[in-house]
Amino acid sequence: MRTLFNYLIFPGFLFSACVGLIACWIDRKVTARIQWRVGPPWYQNFVDIVKLLGKETIVPAGAKITFLLSPVLGLLSTILVATILGVTVRLPLESFIGDLIVVLYLLIIPAISIIIGAFSSRNPLASIGASREMKLVLGYELPFILAITVIIIKSAGSIQIGSILNHQINFGSNLASFSGMLAFLVAIICMQAKLGFAPFDMSESEQEIMGGVFIEYSGLPLAIFKLTKAILLYTMPLLLIILFWAKNLTILASIGKYIAILVIIILIKNTNPRLRIDQAIRFFWGPVTSLAIIAIALALFGL
């Protein structure tokens, strides 16, 4: 019963969806202000979701069953991540050993569900988008996991989010050291790609491939994808806060940290043009991975 409540209402679906949609609004509003516009009202993203629920759902001819299943798969796994993280923040002792690994796996599933959905829609442009997304996943997963390895090294080899939290509460944030700072930088860049924001939004670029992976989606499945992205926009910064910046996690401090990271994401998004996919992979496997390796070396020396 409590698990169900956790999953569906408080740190899970309802709460994270509301926070995520409001974060999406902050994104649109700040973007608009940067471009000297006014921007939409705060309930805009909720209205968008309700509207999409009321639209017709079109399934393209010859699409497989995975076309409709994959959005649900992505949404379920993102909610699970939001629940695990939310419960851990409230009660760090309730986490189980190895939940960091589980979270890492679950965070790849939304990308995989997007890829499966796009491929099963039998649209050539969606296929291009999906293949880009696939290469991007290969690109950013390596430095992201290396950055998290830094955290594991720094918190004495623990792979339990609760004990990583406790370690930081006792010995200060990971961000306060050189290796932690480098790893944080790497993680922010990887998060940008995980969220599919510019400069790494080549998989759904509206201008060249018309929405790319989402081109055939309409109505309910599109709403689910939008919701998944919104919840990811809540969970990814939360994960970074927990791993890197968890010295002081009172409600006010966490909200402040969350908004700070959100604004960093939005500023990166608005000041960079879209990269080509080959440039992105070279960027991730070259400079970003080297930064992550330097961070690991520093962490091993205890810096």
Binding site: R37, V38, G39, P40, Q44, I58, G211, F214, I215
Partner: peptide, 12 residues
């Protein structure tokens, strides 16, 4: 965009 009007890439 103040009124929620946005340009989309796909007709779907």
């Amino acid at each position: 965009e103040r009124f929620g009007i946005a340009l989309v890439g796909s007709v779907r």
